[in-house]
Write a protein that binds this DNA or RNA. Structure first.
Length: 159
DNA sequence: GCCAACGTTGGC
DNA sequence: GCCAACGTTGGC
């Protein structure tokens, strides 16, 4: 099983949106980046776990956990001119862009801020905290995943 | 709102 | 294939 971190802007689509979907399940559409598409296609498996990350907000950080519940399949929003992420170069017969389905699991007990992740030596290798990284979906190692779950608990104590 | 970083586009 | 211009991401 692999671990991932997936970014979204809470004003556009936050974890509360996902949690409010029927069954807490939705597709993760709008990815228009080849690196991410290739990760979807080649590496995402049903049962993988992912952190839900809020970007472009007052306190960017990890806000929840979800599970990957489908293989990659064509992102139909690329075919629709009315969609924000319409891409005329994606042909339904040969789709350029892919998406996966995700299942809401839980909110983390607190927001785990980017600043805290950045300050943690154990996480210095994470793509998230490295300079210039612009991927909206990125891998998380098992050790990093566990470490972040520990951080979540530590932050609770003494409140 | 600013701006650094980086991906994409398109002329040549 | 190079590279300047442009657009986007996303922290601050």
């Amino acid at each position: 099983m692999a671990y991932w971190l997936m970014k979204s802007e809470p004003d556009v689509y936050g974890i509360d949106h996902l949690a409010a979907e029927p069954g807490g399940r939705d597709h993760w559409d709008g990815i228009r980046n080849y690196q991410v598409r290739n990760m979807f296609r080649d590496q995402f498996k049903v049962g993988d776990q992912a952190f839900f990350y809020h970007s472009n907000t007052k306190v960017p950080g990890i806000v929840g956990v979800m599970e990957i519940v489908s293989e990659a399949y064509p992102d139909h929003t690329a075919f629709d001119p009315n969609e924000k992420y319409y891409d005329p170069k994606s042909d339904p017969d040969k789709p350029r862009w892919l998406m996966v389905d995700v299942q809401y699991r839980r909110h983390t007990r607190r927001v785990i801020p980017l600043a805290e992740l950045k300050a943690d030596p154990a996480l210095s290798q994470m793509k998230l905290v490295q300079r210039g990284n612009r991927l909206s979906v990125m891998p998380v190692s098992e050790a990093e995943w566990q470490h972040i779950l520990d951080l979540e608990k530590q932050g609770e104590t003494g409140e």
